[in-house]
Design a protein around this nucleic acid. Structure first.
Lengths: 193, 193
DNA sequence: TAATCTGCTTGATTTAGATCAAGGGTATTT
DNA sequence: AAATACCCTTGATCTAAATCAAGCAGATTA
């Protein structure tokens, strides 16, 4: 159950077996069925979730009822609404499972105690956040600088297997375009290059 | 010279005077004139900069020579191209001063040593990154979910004084719209609401 | 097996915002 | 004080992508 997490941690900091065990003890395992919510708009985000298996997404629903995908999370990734998690204010986002999933949940008090007992984990989270920030920043640049087609190509280069895991409408939502536009782009790329 | 930094640190972690002094010793002060570069595209980003005074921006120039503003940085903020800083690969971005500025620079080796000598700073940087990530995420949601006008209104709500500090074209670039469109939006909002 | 969903495609039309172009005001430079 | 640069505004036109609308194939359910 904790292999993926242990691997994620060991890539960034050195923990001995005891520390790793202690660390694991702060997490609660949870299984999620496809389409099941981990977080619904209006609720406080009580967990940061580590994905051991499966796939989740976080998304925002605008006033025209359109979904906008904020983040995918596959094996080895974390997902949450950090703002709601930290402030305990109701979330404006939703998180649900795109596939059946196995998660390891960490509450805010558990995280705080974990960081007290295993201070090396400060480093783990710092490095993690650094990487997330770089990815987010890249996405901002992408949304500012590129056309729909360029954004799609860049996404496919960065995550070549993503189209095997998630529906095209999810990818369209992530890119900030409509499924129709994505379909036309793919047609265009498939034909005359 | 280090007051703003010391305040930023004390808001997040407790350091005694000695630790604070030690901490400060890893930074190099630097003054930048308006329009002067801190980082140019193609160079490796050798510093993360803490802004003690003044204002900077990071931006990307696309193939049509258009600038896209990634981030503003005023007093108390950090700025860098984290990707280039961490990987030592050439940066795709530029950073320059919007106003004369006073910076405190931290190189990667200096940061590493700082974190070794003052491990509490892991926590400082973690908290900092958490906040940056939340802000970035909000920006992604904004770019996916809102119209130009809504994005502008939200920016003004979040940073009411920004228009006194930076030119409208910079704000337009940050929002991902043209200066013409921003001008029209402002006219619209000023008149009949 | 038929029936209802769900996801994808394709076509016609619309639209938000971009682009192109010009003019005016206010700093900054000479 | 003139010259130059920079920034903002306004108008006319264009365009990438959205919206609206159908139809179809594969999966799920009855």
């Amino acid at each position: 159950m904790y292999e993926v997490l242990a691997k994620s941690i060991r890539e960034k900091v050195f923990l001995n077996e005891d520390e790793m065990q202690l660390c694991a003890s702060f997490f609660t395992p949870k299984k999620l069925r496809k389409k099941q919510y981990l977080l619904q708009e209006g609720d406080v985000c009580r967990y940061t979730a580590f994905v051991e298996k499966g796939a989740l997404r976080s998304y925002h629903v605008d006033k025209k009822d359109q979904e906008h995908l904020i983040q995918f999370a596959f094996e080895g990734w974390w997902i949450a609404d950090s703002y709601s998690f930290l402030t305990e204010e109701p979330s404006a986002y939703n998180i649900d499972a795109l596939e059946d999933a196995e998660l390891l949940l960490l509450t805010l008090p558990a995280q705080e105690e974990l960081l007290l007992k295993v201070p090396k984990m400060e480093r783990y989270f710092r490095i993690l956040l650094q990487k997330s920030l770089i990815a987010m920043q890249r996405r901002v640049v992408s949304s500012l600088s590129y056309t729909a087609e360029e954004k799609y190509i860049k996404l496919m280069e960065a995550y070549p297997n993503i189209s095997q895991r998630v529906a095209q409408q999810q990818i369209a939502s992530y890119l900030g375009i409509t499924p129709e536009t994505l379909s036309r782009i793919r047609k265009q790329l498939a034909s005359g290059k």
